[in-house]
Design a protein around this nucleic acid. Structure first.
Lengths: 107, 107
DNA sequence: TCGATCGATAACTCGTTGGTTATGGATTGA
DNA sequence: TCAATCCATAACCAACGAGTTATCGATCGA
């Protein structure tokens, strides 16, 4: 039924991968090299995490010469918000602001 | 840093476990037997999932004779909501710094 | 052109975990 | 009291996944 958030939950479950996504949210676009220098794992590990994030739609990549720049795609979090809202029902009104924000970014 | 949502993401990443939690959200309190009859896995598997959910604070158990009733604890989802809002907040603050970034974004 | 750098992929290891069956303690009902 | 039911735990197994090193294609600088 709610199969939509499945990929998101699985993708964000790993701490290293989620940390990479968080950093992209905080600091904006980063190259693989920059992310590798910061994360505590090897470059192939970072590349693999970025691949998983991209499959989940959570990041975009932009090629520039021999480097690849990655940036967060916050819109991909929408199914997560929808799922939580569905579970919580009407209970949390804090979501309203976030919904508006995502709607503004949608175009 | 954002260690709070880690347990939640990991706990909700498994489809079977999340399905059990969803059912408890939708249909309210259920016994282990009722959940086992509905889920496609064995009774020990259900018990184990309920144990993990309980460790994450996502369910409560109530003992009544030889049966155990489980119910969802929606308040435990709060760190998940906070995390999502925080990610959106980081995103938004970057818009504040670069006022014309929105224009350059091809979305 | 050539060596160096960047990032993706391949191949492999190994710990984690979600599943199973077996079992035991506790409670109910006859 | 005693058999049956409910649920939790133990023990085990197989699959998955996150990490590693090795390597290769592509691109840049000199």
């Amino acid at each position: 039924m709610s199969n939509a958030p499945d990929l998101l939950f699985r993708t964000l479950a790993d701490p290293t991968r989620r940390a990479i996504f968080e950093r992209l949210c905080r600091n904006g676009e980063q190259t693989v090299g920059a992310l590798t220098a910061w994360a505590g794992v090897s470059q192939p590990a970072v590349s693999k995490h970025l691949g998983v994030l991209k499959l989940a739609g959570l990041v975009r990549d932009r090629h520039e010469g021999r480097q690849t720049h990655y940036s967060a795609q916050l819109r991909a979090l929408t199914p997560l918000i929808d799922w939580t809202q569905q579970m919580a029902g009407f209970w949390e009104s804090r979501f309203d602001d976030l919904e508006d924000l995502l709607k503004r970014m949608d175009q």
